[in-house]
Design a protein around this nucleic acid. Structure first.
Lengths: 260, 260
DNA sequence: CGTAAGCTTGACAAAGTTCAACGATTGTGG
DNA sequence: CCACAATCGTTGAACTTTGTCAAGCTTACG
């Protein structure tokens, strides 16, 4: 029944098709593509730039970097050079404790920006790991700084980006600090549903790109707890789940769980 | 034995003396004081500005706002206007869930900056509440934006500020998501110790400005758990504690607890 | 096709919460 | 200035949630 989950209902194209690694035509590797043709334009840093400003900046073309599953975009301690806009694939960020424990601090989908944690100390404070093959747009930070001084639209967008990340992390603290495991999982599923919707995919049917262990780390619980809660939600007809394919049967029911 | 805790050993002046609400002479109310005389200069947004840039900006004087214990600096949903530099007193930020549950997401000491969560949506995403009487320097955001375009030192400082907040929240997620209650309390005490040290006070003896309930909310546990862990640490000779007065007896011991 | 990685489930243990009682401290109005 | 109320903190006992360990199953991959 869930076999077709990979082909979202509301969208005429599959996720993989729509956000697959670009062909050479539309995305020459190192020289970078013109932003004007990019499908991520509506969510991109550069939207809102006046045409004049765009023309002025002949350099509005950035290198792309491809990532294979498991590959690191950057690692904690590495010199900070750029921030990254996800073009395709999912990326997780991970913070490590000396004794080896790790916390997944973020999950980034196409159109989302990561890497801002590196500005403070000129070194990245987390690892960014690809959860599947994909690619990112590399935005060199020094150029961004300069541009943000020249074009106030860029500045405003950049500051909003910083602030959004702060708000996202606040919400995550709320989740980790004051919700029970069941509520966290419900909130996680509803959040994914929203974000898939924003990308034009089904709100109710999608593929988790993380293992139970990674989900557990993001939500501050053990993989067994994640598994048990998925099973319980399934039994209670709130979701259907088969491995990583999820279908939300009752988003109202999930919302009710958070309401306690 | 802990009766003198209010007078830190290493510092010749008490915390309250050093960071009390300023007298009118050094801090005229609405017109704002010249930054040059401010004791927070080394940590302030404006440090690093060239003298030329400073002179150019005759406006380098900001309104101060006094806060009484329990008073809100801003509330979630209020229009975002400014960010705030704490001059004296402690401030907590709180995020609320519809059902009334709340999560303390931050604790801000003199010299620290808060309010950046409001930029994303032009409305604050949290409440900021004074934990004791104090005052803040009000930095209007539109002026900051303009200034950050003109003076790259300001820009750099501002971006670093954003990034620091992101990193701080990441660490908080690590704490909430992957540490046991005992470890969280130990980490909390060590973190306070560091920050008091940075302000020139004793690393080992200070006054908590939060109730057990507020500490619990910050650390994602119930007030009873906080109390029990304080008692346990006391029994194990890691700290001495009497109400809100804390003395760290063995910071190595606390560090060992985090190491598992 | 075999091996490793990922997922599920059960039984039990540990950690943290809840409820309750009580003492100490703080603040307020008479 | 005192008395009373309210808030804050501590501690015990019972309970709930989540983690741990172990086994077995499925899936993906070389």
């Amino acid at each position: 029944m869930l076999a077709e989950a990979a082909t979202p209902e509301v969208s005429p194209v599959s996720f993989r098709e729509a956000f697959s690694v670009s062909t050479e035509e539309e995305c020459p590797a190192v020289t970078g593509a013109r932003c004007s043709g990019c499908r991520l334009r509506p969510v991109c840093l550069w939207s809102g730039l006046s045409e004049a400003a765009e023309r002025e900046l002949g350099s509005l073309a950035f290198a792309h970097r491809r990532l294979k599953l498991g590959q690191a975009l950057y690692r904690s301690g590495e010199p900070f050079q750029a921030i990254y806009l996800v073009r395709s694939g999912f990326i997780k960020t991970v913070v490590l404790l000396e004794d080896g424990r790790e916390q997944v601090t973020g999950l980034y989908m196409p159109g989302e920006t990561l890497g801002m944690d590196g500005i403070a100390s000129a070194r990245h404070a987390s690892d960014a790991i690809a959860l599947e093959d994909g690619d990112v747009c590399v935005v060199p930070y020094d150029r961004l700084e300069a541009l943000s001084r020249e074009a106030s639209a860029v500045q405003r967008h950049l500051h909003r980006l910083f602030s959004k990340e702060i708000v996202r992390e606040q919400r995550m603290m709320l989740l980790l600090g004051s919700m029970r495991a069941e509520e966290r999982v419900a909130a996680f599923l509803l959040n994914l549903s929203e974000r898939f919707t924003a990308l034009g995919f089904s709100p109710s049917e999608f593929v988790l790109r993380m293992t139970r262990e990674e989900i557990g780390s993001l939500l501050g619980m053990k993989l067994e707890t994640v598994s048990r809660i998925f099973s319980r939600f399934h039994k209670d007809r709130l979701i259907e789940i088969e491995g990583k394919h999820v279908r939300i049967v009752s988003s109202a029911g999930l919302r009710r769980i958070i309401g306690h």
